[in-house]
Nucleic acid binder design. Structure first.
Lengths: 208, 208
DNA sequence: AAAAATAAATTACATTTGTCATATGTTTTC
DNA sequence: GAAAACATATGACAAATGTAATTTATTTTT
């Protein structure tokens, strides 16, 4: 018997899912919730085999809730439900160690997916896996906002990540070498890094 | 009813699988084969819902057979069976559009995977998805020989690529800071690079 | 055992890097 | 128009880096 918890913003969806899944004689729904906070509490209370959770929810969204649960229960098997196949979410889900990502629309594929995940597989929609290579290579420049970097600062970061020294960067940007150093000093401060090598490392770990 | 064809080099495995899977009342095994050539012929003859195929086979291997089948039947749902989770194969399988990659060992997860794939999902082992990002970016680590780097030199490179300065690397390796500088100087010479930042960049472009 | 190679260290030096205080125009904002 | 914010620059300084020559001990080869 596979013990499942369902968490969905829309209570109607959660109940529909419960009904559909309980038609399978090997799946039991322990509880349903409707926000990330519910997910965390219910997970702790029941320790289900699988947590089926929506991604978009008010209050605490599914991804953040998933992160918290996984930090406490690294073995947690979390299957995300979503309406659209949103690149950004998918990458985060994969990165955090979610076991799958299913479109809500295909009701009929949820039960098989739960079974597969229960047996140690990871389940992603076909079209998702197909786009994965390009998605992973695409830079997510969103961190630019997160770290409050200006466009010019980011440009300098790219030059550093290309292995250029201050003189070369200065020449490339028609600025003095001292200015580049000042910029870099500020960039390092913003990113809490020590030197240009750590900056390059940071770049390759975050922007590739 | 899901119609499946099984192709495995080892006839015993193929028959075991047939037996196991036929225990599921919604799976029917239309035929079994034992090489890539069989896979192609059987696929054309039966057009099954799912082709369950070993990767390593004499004559025509599973990947090449899969390629040929997919070129003729782009909608083919091919699930690969394998003994080891071999990075190289996985990438090829994903790239060609296979629907999954299952370790033979876990008999019990094959049926759920077939169901999930039948319903349009893609099924990969958890550990495979986890390593995917790095796998996709990975270049060949054979460059170690190509550039004539010693194991210790390579170790230092990894530390540099981690953002450590000479003092920290020295402490980590129980060597003096001067020695690290000497090593680094030689590494840079060998790799035709100018400074540690370029070395880190080189590392991330070649070894990840 | 002698010679050669290797690993590690030291010293010295030039260069690069990162930081900080400060200066100077140029825009923006009030 | 004054004040604030911004972009750029400079000089000074300590620290880190990269290079080279040399030394010492250890291991390997002959």
């Amino acid at each position: 018997m596979i013990n499942v918890i369902i968490v969905d913003d829309d209570n109607l969806v959660a109940l529909s899912l419960k009904t559909i899944l309980e038609a399978n004689e090997n799946i039991a729904i322990l509880a349903t919730g409707e926000c990330g906070q519910d997910a965390i509490e219910l997970y702790k209370k029941y320790i289900p085999d699988i947590l089926l959770m929506d991604i978009r929810m008010q209050e605490l969204n599914g991804l953040d809730a998933g992160l918290q649960i996984l930090s406490q229960f690294p073995e947690a098997k979390i299957l995300f439900l979503t309406t659209f196949s949103d690149d950004e979410y998918i990458l985060k889900a994969i990165h955090m160690g979610a076991k799958g990502y299913i479109l809500k629309q295909n009701f009929e594929c949820i039960a098989p997916s739960i079974n597969a995940v229960y047996n140690g597989q990871t389940v992603f929609g076909t079209e998702i896996i197909g786009r994965l290579p390009e998605m992973i290579n695409r830079k997510n420049n969103l961190d630019l906002e997160k770290y409050d970097l200006s466009e010019k600062e980011f440009e300098i970061i790219r030059y550093v990540a290309d292995g250029m020294n201050n003189r070369e960067i200065a020449a490339a940007l028609f600025l003095s070498e001292g200015t580049i150093r000042n910029y870099l000093s500020i960039i390092l401060e913003k990113l809490q890094l020590r030197d240009r090598t750590q900056l390059a490392v940071f770049y390759y770990k975050h922007y590739i």
